[in-house]
Simulated scan of single mutants.
Amino acid sequence: MTVREVRDILGARVLVGEDHLDREVRSACGSDMMSDVLAFSKDHSILLTGLCNAQVIRTAEMLDIVCLIFVRGKKPDEAMLQMAEERGLIVMATGHRMFSACGMLYEAGLHSGAI
């Protein structure tokens, strides 16, 4: 699945990385706890979170996460968006709650992969 398809499924707004929407993603992880993301996230994945701080960008960079999606209408500040852009991350925002957003992606065929 591509990030563009993910955007369309969630009706998300692209905040940074519009020119990278054709990147492939293989799995998704939804969490507000970065320790869980570090433990369970896979390469070429999407991170769905409601946590809006710089640690999210740093965690994504360490794990080769392709795209960050902020749920529940959360919007990162300009400093976070600048950090993400410098690192080549795609950042999107959706009004869906995390549970709903993860369910929509799962239903469309994007899974978490084996632990």
Rank of each mutant, 00 (worst) to 15 (best):
C67E: 09
I65F: 03
I65C: 07
I69D: 03
V66W: 07
L89G: 06
F70L: 08
R87G: 07
A93C: 13
I69Y: 01
V66A: 09
A93H: 03
E86F: 01
A84R: 06
V71P: 06
I90W: 01
E86L: 10
V71Q: 04
M83F: 08
K75A: 14
V71D: 04
Q82H: 15
E85V: 06
A93M: 12
M83Y: 04
I65M: 09
L81T: 00
A79E: 14
M80K: 08
I65V: 14
E78M: 11
L81N: 01
I65E: 04
A93F: 02
L89S: 08
K74T: 02
K75H: 15
D64V: 03
I65G: 06
L81W: 00
E86T: 09
V91S: 00
V66F: 05
R72F: 07
I65R: 06
V71A: 10
K75F: 14
D77E: 12
R72S: 13
A93N: 11
L68P: 02
D77G: 15
G73I: 08
L68Y: 07
L68I: 15
A84K: 06
A93W: 01
M92A: 10
A84L: 10
R72A: 12
D64A: 13
G88R: 05
E85A: 15
Q82L: 14
P76H: 03
M80V: 07
I90D: 06
D77P: 08
R87F: 03
I65P: 07
G88S: 03
I69P: 02
D64H: 14
Q82E: 15
L81D: 00
G88V: 04
G73F: 09
K75L: 15
E78G: 08
G73K: 11
E85T: 05
I90F: 03
E86A: 13
D77C: 13
D64N: 15
C67V: 14
V71I: 14
D77R: 11
F70G: 03
V71G: 07
C67L: 12
L81Y: 02
G88E: 03
I90V: 15
A93L: 01
M92F: 10
D77T: 09
A84Y: 05
A93R: 14
M92G: 09
V71E: 05
K75C: 13
A79Y: 09
L81Q: 13
L68D: 03
M80W: 02
A84T: 06
D77W: 10
M80F: 07
V71W: 04
F70S: 04
D64R: 13
M80I: 04
M92T: 08
V71H: 04
I69N: 02
E78T: 13
I65Q: 04
D77Q: 11
E86R: 14
L81H: 00
P76Y: 00
D77H: 10
K74V: 08
P76A: 01
P76C: 02
I65Y: 08
I65W: 06
K75N: 13
K74I: 01
P76T: 02
G73Y: 08
L81S: 00
L68E: 12
A79G: 12
E78V: 11
D64F: 06
C67P: 11
V66C: 11
V91T: 00
K75M: 15
R72P: 04
A93T: 15
A79T: 10
M83N: 02
M92Y: 07
R72Q: 12
A79K: 13
C67S: 12
A93P: 01
I69F: 02
